[in-house]
Design a protein around this nucleic acid. Structure first.
Length: 588
RNA sequence: GGGGGUGUAGCGAAGUGGCUCAACGCGCCGGCCUGUCACGCCGGAGAUCGCGGGUUCAAAUCCCGUCGCCCCCGCCA
């Protein structure tokens, strides 16, 4: 490269008029006017217009004429003020242009398979196959940059507050329970496997036993489960743990970290971050990560219908279920097919059906109104403060199904009715999670968070008799309906830990087999400790307004966990398999 | 494991049994053009309609199977 770059494209403005500069980058597009030719030159900073004229530089003009999209060039030229009528107000550099004097083609490009511009229409699989082209698009480079800034902000904040960044192994051992592990066969130990960490959970607790006191890591985590729009098989956590925690101070510190991260895009949260209990979140929003940017809360109608003639309601309640509802303002005008769509939604989440009552001017339209008494309708009107035009949507079911299906319906309605205010960011803590949840299939309790989560002090006495009523010293941080972080205080008391293991139906031997190294560490003086982990990718999604986690990871996987660019996962040679003592069994 | 959506030139996309039935826009190639910035004008190339099989005189279109991608349920302590 003979021409040495002196400036980025985007920094050039009228201050530079009269200077000769060298810029370098990619050809965005050319506009050829015969003997005058314009080139939009793009680098990661932005775009500047180059002008080539046969009268100024015959040689450079000839090269410029042959340029195509995405050719990489360096250009020397004089910065010139544009004539007033030719200023481009849409470009930061629109007041000036560079009169090209010399041009060097550094790397010619084939015609790219799609246009390198924001709002690209190409299918996502093509974008992933040519990820380097996709990433050139300004809106993609922007997320790459934001992620860098978030990581820098995180490191600075935590380091300034006494946290040490410590690495933990990527090759570790499989610990059953939790997500499916990615396994790595061992060459030196026939038939044995490493596992990639689902999170550094056990290691960060051992770091507390090691005297680190305040730890963090921007940690890659691996989970071999099916993918979603916000789930990748490998993702990144901001992982944090402290010893001798004061929960109030710790949470305030974590709030401050989140504030500083979101300040990168000028997003500001109120001084007081509100809290909801798990129970409140489920009751009102049908979710443990509620979106509180709009109302439409779930209501409990069980008291009204406990003795109803309408058996669907009363027998559900008699069997321990519940009748819950959403009141949709102005919803009475929904068409039958719209209502059918809503019913499909609740059915996806296990509800048997969706009952509805539309309070129109003249009447109550509803397939079930004929089964309801006047008193029931009067009480319904009163409790829900029904006004003309309202629509009431009702699910009768077991508690979990009723609130989760209505919770999902609530989100669907918010989208359809455009209830979510733009540029609003509702941050809140969810607390008082249950320590255990009951797994019907396996007929045993499971840890809601993980088996080292401490119960709330005041609930410990309930462990014996009513384990399902024990609340955990766990907390999630939720932003706009997305769980962005979660953590807990950990158990560091041997008796309590074995109590929890036994409630989880795990024998001492089994616990020893699975987590022995952690339990042993606890034998040698482990401070009380606790921590949190934030989902870095989800934070970037919200921060950059993206709907897909794939847009905030430089090289993501498809929904089938493949990489169209590298073609991973790929076959390996027979020799490799033999070294690992592995054999691929025949297809069934 | 299950439900839904989708696949037509390099990209986006119209076309749902027949007789210009493979439109249109972007991009690409050639030509013209000194003020464009989604430049404009003229001309051109480019498609085994995801793949395989079937029905039919006739299939992008109907049927069966299969594959890729996307969304969701299950799953994700």
């Amino acid at each position: 490269m003979e021409l040495a770059r002196t400036n980025n494209c985007n920094e050039l403005d009228s201050d530079y008029i009269g200077e000769t500069v060298v810029v370098a980058g990619w050809v965005q597009r050319t506009r050829d006017h015969g003997s005058l030719l314009f080139v939009d030159l793009r680098d990661r900073s932005g775009i500047v217009q180059l002008v080539f004229s046969t009268k100024i530089a015959e040689e450079a003009f000839k090269i410029a004429e042959s340029l195509g999209q995405e050719d990489v060039i360096a250009v020397r030229g004089l910065i010139r003020k544009r004539p007033a009528e030719n200023v481009n107000a849409d470009l930061p550099t629109g007041e000036i242009e560079i009169m090209g004097e010399e041009i060097e083609l550094l790397s010619a490009s084939d015609t790219p398979p799609f246009l390198i511009e924001d709002g690209v229409k190409a299918g996502e699989d093509l974008r992933l196959e040519y990820r380097y082209l996709d990433l050139r698009r300004p809106e993609m480079l922007e997320t790459v940059k934001i992620k860098h800034q978030v990581m820098q902000t995180t490191r600075k904040f935590l380091s300034d507050n006494g946290y040490w960044e410590v690495e933990t192994p990527i090759l570790t051992r499989s610990t059953p329970e939790g997500a499916r592990d990615y396994l790595v066969p061992s060459r030196l130990h026939r038939g044995k496997f490493y596992a990639l960490p689902q999170s550094p959970q056990l290691f960060k607790q051992i770091l507390m036993a090691s005297g680190v006191e305040k730890y963090f890591q921007i940690a890659r985590c691996f989970r071999d489960e099916d993918l979603r729009a916000n789930r990748q098989p490998e993702f990144t956590q901001i992982d944090i743990e402290i010893s001798f925690p004061n929960l109030v101070d710790f949470k305030a510190e974590m709030e401050e970290l989140i504030r500083q991260i979101f300040a990168i895009n000028d997003i500001v949260f109120p001084n007081k971050v509100p809290s909801l209990s798990y129970q409140e979140a489920m009751d009102w929003y049908g979710s443990d990560s509620p979106d509180t940017r709009f109302g439409l809360k779930i209501r409990d109608l069980s008291a009204i219908f406990a003795d109803s003639e309408f058996r669907v309601f009363s027998s559900t309640i008699a069997e321990g279920g519940t009748v819950r509802a959403l009141k949709v303002k102005e919803g009475a005008s929904f068409s039958r097919s719209q209502l059918d769509k809503l019913e499909e939604k609740v059915k996806e989440y296990g509800a048997k059906g969706l009952a509805w009552l539309a309070f129109t001017e003249s009447e109550i339209k509803s397939p079930i109104v004929k089964f309801l008494s006047e008193e029931e309708i009067a009480r319904l009107r009163q409790q829900l403060e029904i006004e003309q035009g309202d629509l009431v949507l009702i699910v009768a079911s077991d508690y979990k199904t009723a609130v989760t299906s209505l919770g999902q319906l609530r989100l669907l309605l918010a989208e359809k009715l455009d209830l979510i205010p733009a540029n609003q960011y509702n941050l809140l803590w969810i607390e008082d999670f249950p320590l255990f949840s009951y797994n019907e299939e396996e007929a045993r309790y499971e840890a809601e968070h993980h088996p080292f989560t401490a119960p709330l002090e005041e609930d410990i006495e309930l462990l014996e008799e009513n384990p399902d009523q024990v609340r955990a010293a766990a907390y999630d941080l939720v932003l706009n309906g997305e769980e962005i972080g979660g953590g807990s205080l950990r158990i560091n008391n041997k008796e309590l830990q074995s109590k929890v293991f036994s409630l989880l139906n795990m024998s001492a031997e089994e616990a020893q087999e699975k987590f022995g190294f952690l339990l042993q560490a606890f034998e040698y003086g482990t401070p009380p400790h606790g921590g949190i982990a934030f989902g870095l990718d989800r934070i970037i999604m919200i921060l950059s307004g993206r709907n897909s986690i794939r847009d905030v990871i430089a090289f993501p996987k498809t929904q089938r966990a493949t990489s169209p660019m590298t073609k991973a996962p790929g076959k390996v040679s027979r020799k490799q398999l033999e070294e690992l003592n592995l054999e691929i069994s025949a297809e069934e």
